[in-house]
Write a protein that binds this DNA or RNA. Structure first.
Lengths: 138, 138
DNA sequence: GATGGGAATGATACACATTCTCAACCATTA
DNA sequence: TAATGGTTGAGAATGTGTATCATTCCCATC
């Protein structure tokens, strides 16, 4: 997971990194595109995808392949876990100490070369929960 | 996660269930479609998607929203974890005792109504590992 | 300062998984 | 039997992500 090679920090990549670091959410590629476009209106969608992928390979950012149909990206790269709202798809960090030893257990009980793991909780976020209650009482 | 309501067991649904129970892998909707089509050649792809989704909502089967671009389905509905090959996308079960108490921890440290969790390991499966070694030695 | 080659970009077309739409169909009940 | 409502199959539509390709940019060298 080390940087495989230095990549050139083009203006586009700089802006993508900055915008990603600016938010505490875990935006999808499209959301990153929208954020970046405010500063670089002529940037192409392909460039955003290409560079998010590139920077994830490089270890500069984290690619979250969580449930749902979209990949999400995170500027915080240390091991931590997430919770996803089954209702609106939002992804938040969850405060739970990392359990890196799980990798060893998995390695022992399978014939895979284990490289990592991810825990994803699912639930209903506060906003969606309230919306549901209102819908019922009405 | 209880069955919300009885659903009618149409021939299509019956066959989908049977075929899904028959395999120990975690097929994608398309793979299920291929398996089912051998017995019901005129079934529509939409029907397969519709019913997999329906049966998952109903708790009859498990929908795995793991990494990768496709949803996968599992006839075994008790809590267990998975490992996904980052190379070929294959998903296997991992022998690891379930940790249902994690849900409580997550619930305590967030404002979500936690409904469950899933642990997904990633790694390189035996087949892909061998293929890689060959590619290097050549 | 010109220039040549590789990397990067933006526009577009494409691929793929999934969902939607809708007419036809079927089981059940009035 | 007729009406009702859920179900199906076919195909169109959507949405996410990838590939292609001409153009542009960067930068070392002349």
């Amino acid at each position: 997971m080390q940087p495989q090679s230095e990549i050139r920090l083009t203006p586009q990549r700089q802006v993508i990194l900055e915008e990603l670091a600016k938010v505490k959410t875990h935006p999808t590629a499209n959301e990153v595109y929208d954020m970046v476009r405010k500063r670089l209106p002529r940037i192409g969608l392909g460039t955003v995808y290409r560079n998010l992928e590139l920077m994830a390979d490089n270890g500069m950012i984290l690619k979250l392949e969580v449930g749902g149909s979209q990949k999400r990206f995170d500027a915080i790269t240390n091991l931590h876990y997430h919770i996803r709202c089954t209702c609106c798809g939002k992804v938040d960090d969850i405060e739970l100490t990392a359990m890196p030893h799980l990798d060893q257990l998995a390695s022992d009980s399978s014939d895979y070369q284990v490289v990592g793991h991810h825990i994803e909780f699912s639930g209903i976020c506060a906003t969606c929960g309230e919306a549901q209650e209102k819908a019922i009482t009405n």
